[in-house]
Design a protein around this nucleic acid. Sequence first.
DNA 1: TTTTTAGTTCACAATAAAATGAACTAGTTT
DNA 2: AAACTAGTTCATTTTATTGTGAACTAAAAA
Lengths: 152, 152
Amino acid sequence: MVLTEKQKELVEQFGVLNEKYGLPPAECRVWGLFLVADKVELTFDEIMETLNLSKGGTSNALKRLQMTNHIDYITKLGDKKRYFRCKLNNWTQMTKENFEKFDELNIILKKILRNRNSKTTSFNNDLKEVTEFLDFIYNEMLLAINKWEAKN
Amino acid sequence: MVLTEKQKELVEQFGVLNEKYGLPPAECRVWGLFLVADKVELTFDEIMETLNLSKGGTSNALKRLQMTNHIDYITKLGDKKRYFRCKLNNWTQMTKENFEKFDELNIILKKILRNRNSKTTSFNNDLKEVTEFLDFIYNEMLLAINKWEAKN
DNA sequence: TTTTTAGTTCACAATAAAATGAACTAGTTT
DNA sequence: AAACTAGTTCATTTTATTGTGAACTAAAAA
């Protein structure tokens, strides 16, 4: 499979952004490839050759993308190859999970607040307000996702 | 400054969580220390000694936390030392910036969508729906933050 | 039953990120 | 001006993360 310059550029842009969130470069590129490719089903070798990855690297990236639910694969009768596909119907779920992680921080902040020395009143009040803000936002997020799901 | 076991535990928990978001361990611990400490103003040496960090490491962590607007410092007349403090009044701003980053991904997805081969109709429609969902959530987020700011 | 195909695993190499601490700067005190 | 204090910088080391490719497994074809 040959990518246009534009496709390559988009794979890299998508990659760089996701690397900022801690994904390994190879995994970002594979995910990006699925998003820009002219077809929907990609084989192991196509991915490996198009992105110039090693076998191990390709295998690892695909494994991780499956574990994180970004891709899956189908098989075809009388054909040993796997046909990998990008899943796009899981973004509300993914986003929800993102907000759960956001909430985890708040959970720790609340624990910290409960254990603080009561003498630092002003700081404690400010921290309390932060946790209330985060509670509020988290809740609004869940409402927003519900609203979207009701509409669609 | 001596931390209780509970305080140490909270620093580590806060640290591990933030490391997941890509912050260096030392920086996470310094930030955490500010959150659990029994006092609000901490000096360079207190931080360094309490967390067993090197001078360079401490300096670097403090620099980064200042750049990201999590801490600042005050000085006192006839005293060369800096008194570092954790800022808690910037969380709505921080949260807003987080959502901007979230929106960056959507911006790339929209670019990708515009460049896709029109033959993969179903995939393209799914991708379009993802971008619409992300648009919707981003917008709801901004509304939620405004709502909070109006209330407070 | 040998060979080919499709992919995984894993020891190792390459690269990148973080921490260390000695040498430095710049302000203070003596 | 010498000595001290508070913190920064930066070359080096330490540690952790990624990627590589050869050896492997397991299924299918010859």
